[in-house]
Simulated assay, not measured.
Amino acid sequence: MQKEDCFYLGKIVKKYSFKGEVLAKLDTDQPELYDNLDAIFLEVRGSLIPFFVEDTQLHKSELLRIKFEDVDTEADADSILKSGLYLPLDLLPKLEGNKFYFHEVIGFKINDKNFGEVGTITAINDSTAQSLFVIDRNGTEILIPMNDDFIKKVDRKAKTILVETPEGLIDLYLQG
C-alpha cells in the first residue's frame, strides 16, 4: 500500500498497558467511526506496514485505545510508539455539500464571486492557525484562508470551489 493511496488517521502517542496496548490520537472530529477497524497501516521507518487489530476502545473521547495482534509487550509497544496511522482512501466517509478533505480538492479551480477565476489549488497549507488554499494563478501564488464564511459552493463534478473573499484580498497578491 502506497502512502498516496491512504489518508492520515492519527498517531500512536503512548503505551497504555504492559500487554502492548497503545493510545492513538486521531486526527478526526468523529473518532467513533474508527472504533471497529480490522487493520491499520502503521508508518514504520518510512514504509506502511499492515497491523491487524485485536481490539479498540474509545478512551477519554479523543484517544483510541488499540490492541494489535502480535504486539504483546511493552517493548513491542515501544517499537511502534510515535508511528503514524493510515487507512486506505476508500474508507473515508463521503463528505457532502461544502465539506471536503484536503487531498480531494487539489487541482480544483477557485472562483471568487467578485473577482472571477482565481486559479488552481496546488496545495493546502495547514501549518498555520488557519488552513489556507494555495492557488497558482499563472505562476503567482495566492493564499486564501479556508474560512467557512468564504466558501460558498464546492462543486465536485465541475471540480470548482466558489469563494467570496474580502474585497482586495486577491489583488494584494497581483500588485507587483
Rank of each mutant, 00 (worst) to 15 (best):
E141K: 15
E21Y: 06
M1H: 08
F51G: 02
S83I: 13
E104K: 12
N98D: 11
F52C: 03
D126F: 10
E43K: 11
L63P: 07
V53W: 01
L89A: 10
L92V: 08
F7P: 08
A24Q: 03
D112W: 04
I161K: 03
Q2E: 13
I170E: 00
L9A: 01
I151K: 03
D149T: 13
S127M: 00
K11F: 00
G84E: 14
D149A: 08
Q30V: 13
S17T: 15
I110R: 07
K159V: 01
K3H: 11
E167Y: 01
K60W: 03
Y8L: 06
F7N: 07
G84W: 02
L162Q: 04
D155H: 03
K82R: 13
D149E: 12
G139S: 09
I80L: 08
D155R: 09
G97K: 08
K152G: 02
G119W: 04
E54S: 14
K152F: 00
P166Y: 09
Y101E: 03
Y8M: 02
Y16H: 14
K94D: 00
A24N: 04
V163T: 12
G139I: 12
G176V: 15
E21D: 13
F150M: 12
Y8N: 03
F102Y: 15
E4M: 04
L89W: 12
E167L: 00
P50H: 08
G84I: 08
I106K: 03
T160F: 00
K82Q: 11
Q30K: 15
K19A: 11
G97Y: 05
L172N: 10
P88A: 07
L26M: 08
V105H: 06
L132T: 09
E62G: 12
V22E: 01
F100M: 10
Y173Q: 04
L9Q: 07
L143P: 06
L172T: 15
L26K: 06
T140N: 11
I49W: 02
Q57F: 05
Q130I: 15
L42H: 06
T128V: 06
L48E: 05
G97F: 06
T28E: 03
L64P: 00
K152W: 01
K157T: 13
F150W: 12
S17L: 09
K157R: 10
N138Q: 13
Q57T: 15
I66Y: 03
D35I: 14
M146G: 01
E62S: 15
G116Y: 08
T160P: 02
F41Q: 07
K3N: 04
H103D: 12
L92C: 05
A24R: 05
V105K: 04
I161L: 00
G46Y: 06
K152R: 13
S83K: 11
D27R: 10
L37H: 01
K11V: 09
E117P: 13
L42A: 00
